[in-house]
Design a protein around this nucleic acid. Structure first.
Lengths: 335, 335
DNA sequence: TTGAAAGCGCTAACAC
DNA sequence: GTGTTAGCGCTTTCAA
């Protein structure tokens, strides 16, 4: 049939084949009002016949692309899996689709490129991005942010209860009799005191719990090396300190799994955060905080759809947390 | 400034601010010929000043979106991580970006939606999609397929050496003295004999090696339940058969990890495929075939860029494989 | 080297 | 209920 690449069938072809106007075809594909059953049928036949598929680019230019962009940072990838799963679930049955934009560096670039007219809305995990910058972004395109404890006015937030989750971990470890408990966390900018990221809060709670327990002198913090995928060396360093910890509270499961690798056979209790699928594996058996990532992803997508339907006042969703206790903490003693 | 959403700065605004025509601005942002240094500078200043970002939708409608779509199936997610990593690496320094389209069901839908003018090219893992259908798709948009052993004429392929890889696993297990070796693989359609998917080939090689070794009577095949995320129950079922295997060759690492869970403590040797990051973890220690997923992803993206530059004759890249031997097979005896 | 103008495929007013 | 028309923001001949 067609010779040149891209010479695909357009709305005009369908209109011609069905003997109607392009506007009519447009109405049919959007389920808009003012279409008689007869016309609808003829148009749908023509669409079927010609294998017509609307151009996303053209639709986006004029109205909606029906694509929601989800920015996925490289770190903590296993938790993002849950988010993606939830988001996909939430758009099922709607005309919207989720597309993923992998980010590595500072997230400004990825977010901007998502906002460049490719998607109708954005879900992102960018704890460090400036709030005013985000408010500006949110003026151009609907935005839902994950893991931000700020109180925005132009976008929505979906967060876990980091205070409760971290406290549950600490209570658990302290209850087991551990005194030298260390915290393994993300590199500096994202854990700076008062910056309000989930990891900063978990760190603060760790500190507070240690002090409350009269263990201020045993506070030990290790950070994953910036740029390094693995937290294994950071955990290893922790374990070779003069007075090594008997327990490690890792900021998320990926780091906890790295810590397990570093601590293999040393009898160190390790707890993580996010309850990723791997935590339940019998060979891993990682105690972890379930913050219901799938539900968080679903909520984020749902909130975005609401904004697309016209809501403008900001909303905030906080998921509940539950500690899943497994052998990584129960099979070792405080030594 | 702007009131309504989407009222962002356009090429006309830049043109006006710089006192030039829109065509001139277009040339500048595309680094096209025929721009005087002076004009270029004024335009770039205006772009900077106004914070102009070209609309992807508008560009896509007329030319390129500068986005490459990578379809990521849900199964075998850990291997896809390598592919994504490689693809991202390959587009670094080019104007192109990778976007991910998660697929769950039959991949036709995801591929079509990618082809709807959103991206300039497609990288996909769709072993079951019909070749002629793909050839048609490839007429509309450049396509590179991963894990297809067919010989297409309109698209490129990137594959691993499944024959060599599977044979290495079998040689290893047989060399260890195992006789009752089972194969854990994907659900039926993707492993149907002769369908040419990587998993079908690994299965065939398994069969052939067993027969060559005079162990035809010990051939045992288990398939992950279609729809179930985990292969754990399939592996468990395998282990409760009357004459249970002493070794399991799993079609990929995710299934191998599930098999490890099912076999925990039973002294069954388990080998996987893909050498995902988890395989090297000390608590997992999974013997696995490294087929260089990152390189495969990079090659796929590079080939796509070549097509975008005009290449039309099909190319094929096959990665080499190497068996990584770890404790999952070496710490147990054939019993 | 620069700009005017046409048009990519679609949607949204508005007329009929 | 249906069609006409005017763009969305950009690229691309083609004249100047």
């Amino acid at each position: 049939m067609s010779i040149r690449r891209g010479r695909s069938v357009t709305i005009s072809d369908v209109a011609e084949a069905a003997g109607v106007s392009r506007a009519a075809v447009s109405k049919v594909i959007r389920n808009a009002y003012g279409v008689s059953p007869g016309m609808r049928e003829r148009v749908e036949d023509a669409i079927e016949q010609l294998g017509y598929r609307p151009s996303v680019a053209a639709r986006a230019l004029r109205g909606s692309s029906y694509r929601l962009g989800l920015e996925t940072p490289h770190v903590n990838a296993r938790f993002m899996t849950q988010i993606v799963e939830g988001a996909k679930r939430a758009v099922t049955g709607t005309p919207y689709q989720i597309i993923l934009a992998p980010a590595d560096g500072p997230e400004y670039g990825t977010l901007e490129s998502l906002a460049d007219g490719l998607v109708d809305g954005i879900i992102a995990v960018s704890p460090l991005v400036d709030q005013t910058w985000l408010e500006d972004l949110a003026k151009r395109v609907p935005v839902v942010m994950l893991g931000r404890h700020d109180t925005p006015q132009g976008y929505d937030t979906v967060i876990g209860d980091d205070h409760a989750g971290a406290r549950a971990v600490m209570r658990h470890l302290l209850g087991l009799g551990h005194r030298r408990i260390a915290h393994l966390t993300e590199p500096e900018p994202v854990t700076a005191p008062g910056c309000g990221t989930p990891h900063a809060i978990r760190l603060e709670v760790y500190r507070a719990c240690m002090i409350e327990a009269g263990l201020g002198a045993h506070i030990q913090i290790a950070r994953r090396t910036a740029g390094a995928d693995s937290a294994q060396s950071a955990a290893a360093e922790l374990l070779t300190r003069p007075d090594p910890p008997t327990a490690i509270f890792a900021g998320h499961d990926d780091m906890a799994v790295d810590a397990l690798a570093a601590a293999a056979g040393r009898g160190v209790a390790i707890a993580g955060y996010d309850n990723t699928d791997l935590a339940a594996h019998p060979l891993i058996g990682l105690t972890s905080v379930d913050q219901q990532g799938v539900e968080m992803g679903a909520q984020a997508a749902t909130m975005l759809l609401e904004r697309l339907q016209g809501r403008t006042e900001p909303r905030r969703y906080m998921s509940t947390t539950e500690l899943r206790i497994r052998t990584s903490t129960t099979s070792v003693s405080p030594g």
